[in-house]
């Protein structure tokens, strides 16, 4: 190594760029949080001023980003050994662990405080609890200790629509609980479809994911069970004040596809899956991402139809 090369390396340590800090906040997870929180907020009765909506959704997104940064800080050791996460800012050495911790803690505090001012105290406490749940309960405690890590940890990802609803109403309702249940029950089959074909990664990292601990067959059974449980929850939402015919049609089509996918995964075994390089599992994993986006966008369409007074007044609101 020449002197010049050494100089460059020394100087560049810890000099991450803006995009590296942004990557620390898990932008893809943040996009889902923004969508679900916004739908939760706009679906709620009463309505929120657009400026307040923008400010509060920003707080929720930053809170989610902060917990993502804290998760990366805590999990840097296992991220480094897994193929999927090896090029994250911490394992790749672009961002220092102390920076990630600092950014995570500072943004967590800021987002909660600002949400209490922009929105209300209840939603701010809810956001603080969500950050605590994701970072402490999921990342620090459950992820490395139980194969049910995804099931319980999934709650953290399911809270944003409830926080959005809480910003608008200051409370909780059946509709917001159902939106929570939708994401909560969707998370296990979504992640386990990934875990089946990324099994080696989790074994290497020592994370007790269900396929690692209980085996391939048990995971396939669980994927089908959770997808079956998800179906009625998604359909009941169509008959609440936030649902409608558009959501009903979209939910029916996407649930049928997700169920078909879960059934296809259940029918196969490890040998068949290995032979075709987990083609079905990968397809269902990708489809599951589309599933959640589609259902929440359908709820968004219902909100717009109601705002334009175009919703069908004869639609039965049973719950």
């Amino acid at each position: 190594m020449t002197d010049t090369a050494m100089d460059i390396e020394t100087v560049q340590t810890g000099e991450a760029q803006v995009k590296d800090y942004f990557a620390l906040m898990k932008p893809r997870v943040m996009s889902l949080v923004v969508l679900t929180a916004a739908i939760g907020m706009f679906a709620a009765p009463g309505g929120v001023h657009p400026v307040i909506a923008l400010a509060t959704i920003l707080c929720i997104a930053i809170g989610a980003g902060a917990s993502g940064a804290l998760n990366m800080w805590w999990d840097a050791d296992i991220d480094a050994v897994m193929k999927r996460t090896a090029n994250r800012p911490l394992p790749s050495g672009v961002v220092e662990p102390g920076e990630a911790l600092g950014i995570g803690v500072a943004l967590s505090i800021m987002s909660v405080l600002m949400l209490s001012i922009f929105g209300n105290i209840f939603s701010a406490v809810f956001l603080a609890f969500t950050i605590f749940f994701y970072v402490v309960i999921y990342s620090m405690w459950l992820k490395r200790s139980t194969p049910q890590n995804i099931v319980i940890g999934g709650a953290a990802g399911a809270f944003p629509p409830m926080i959005g609803w809480a910003v608008a109403t200051g409370g909780i309702s059946l509709e917001s609980l159902l939106m929570f249940a939708l994401i909560f029950l969707w998370t296990p089959p979504h992640f386990w479809a990934l875990a089946i074909f990324r099994n080696e990664d989790y074994v290497k990292a020592g994370v007790p994911m269900l396929p690692v601990v209980a085996g391939d067959r048990a995971t396939r059974n669980q994927i089908l069970i959770y997808t079956l449980l998800l179906f009625p929850v998604a359909m009941v939402l169509a008959f609440t004040s936030v649902g409608g015919p558009v959501y009903f049609a979209v939910a029916l089509a996407y649930n049928a596809r997700f169920l078909w996918g879960a059934w296809s995964i259940w029918k196969r075994d490890e040998a068949t899956a290995t032979a075709d390089k987990f083609k079905t599992e990968l397809r269902v994993f990708l489809e599951s991402i589309g599933y959640l986006f589609a259902l929440f966008i359908a709820l968004g369409i219902e909100i717009m139809l109601r705002a334009l007074d175009l919703s069908w007044s004869g639609w039965p609101v049973l719950f």
Binding site: D7, I8, V11, E15, Q17, V18
Partner: peptide
């Protein structure tokens, strides 16, 4: 140890961006 001018400039650009 010599200081490389290009490297110094590069780091200033990054810092400015931040």
């Amino acid at each position: 140890m010599s200081i490389d001018q290009t490297a110094t400039h590069e780091i200033y650009t990054r810092r400015k961006g931040r």
